[in-house]
Design a protein around this nucleic acid. Structure first.
Lengths: 162, 162
DNA sequence: GCAATATAGATCCATATGGTTCTATATTGA
DNA sequence: TCAATATAGAACCATATGGATCTATATTGC
């Protein structure tokens, strides 16, 4: 990192928007690395692998629940599901009491593919967060959880149209 | 949040990818709210306002430096600059010793527009991070900084093509 | 019981995105 | 000095994205 880069960081991450800026920076920087890798090596857009992740860990999950875990527009999830089904990485079962709803289940190939991706992403997580001590990691997660569990994350009073 | 949603969160944010998942979740959820607001009320894509931010805070900045602060593909920054210049929110000056490079400066309108956006985004930041105590916010920022300052964030050994 | 409304998810379409390539200029090294 | 290489940024184009709408089914209230 150049001196110029460092002083820009120093100022930005001390500014009035420092928290949002710092957090977004990490996610943007990591996505540049991680998304590119997964798209290149698995020919799979980022929404597809996160939907596959949700399906493997929560078999029977519905599209609308995937959307709660990975906050994305509904049609993005819908498309990801279509792609995963076309590639036979998941299958769908219509809900018995609500025929609109479709439960998602991984196929064997889907579970195997996710295992591969997950292993790689875990290594990547260790690269990114490895710079923190175990105790710092724990703290970081606790603070993230606190933000996620608050009800202001998904809606806004400040952003009512003015 | 439904019970189902809570238990999905509980499990996901305790899993082996908990750190990446938790951080991405916050940024995705916030972007859904913030990006939509700015696009709707200012008719400005997210990259444009972040580039405007960089220009106002670092007048004379180059496109390649904006890219360091907001890790995005080079052509996205290039397009954002074009849009901002077309709307006369920034102007450009060719570098005297390197005629390829163009320094960015905000116009008065650009600075005024950013001030409005920034105020709103600051209110939003307070909604999202307001759930943390001052001390927790400070800790959160310190940990983010530690990750940002490490050299593994922007490249990866794990993701060398295999 | 049934009209009004809400919800799950699919599809449409205009636009944003990002990998790649291109041009112009700078730097490097034999 | 000048060919080889690197860099700043623009442009091209195939694809991803997301707001809006649509269909089908479920729920709600009179």
């Amino acid at each position: 990192m150049s001196d110029k880069g460092l002083s820009i960081f120093e100022e930005t991450f001390s500014s009035d928007l420092c928290y949002l800026m710092a957090m977004s920076h990490i996610v943007l920087a990591n996505n540049q690395v991680t998304s590119r890798f997964i798209e290149k090596n698995y020919d799979m857009p980022v929404h597809a692998w996160s939907t596959l992740y949700a399906t493997v860990y929560f078999p029977g999950i519905l599209a609308k629940e995937v959307q709660v875990l990975f906050p994305r527009p509904q049609n993005s999830i819908s498309r990801a599901i279509k792609l995963l089904e076309e590639r036979q990485l998941i299958r769908r079962e219509v809900d018995k009491s609500d025929t609109r709803a479709k439960h998602l289940f991984p196929t064997e190939e889907g579970a195997a593919l996710l295992a591969g991706i997950e292993e790689k992403v875990k290594q990547r997580q260790e690269e990114v967060f490895g710079v923190l001590t175990d105790s710092e990691k724990e703290t970081f997660l606790r603070l993230c959880r606190k933000i996620i569990d608050s009800d202001t994350l998904n809606s806004s009073a400040a952003f009512e149209v003015f």
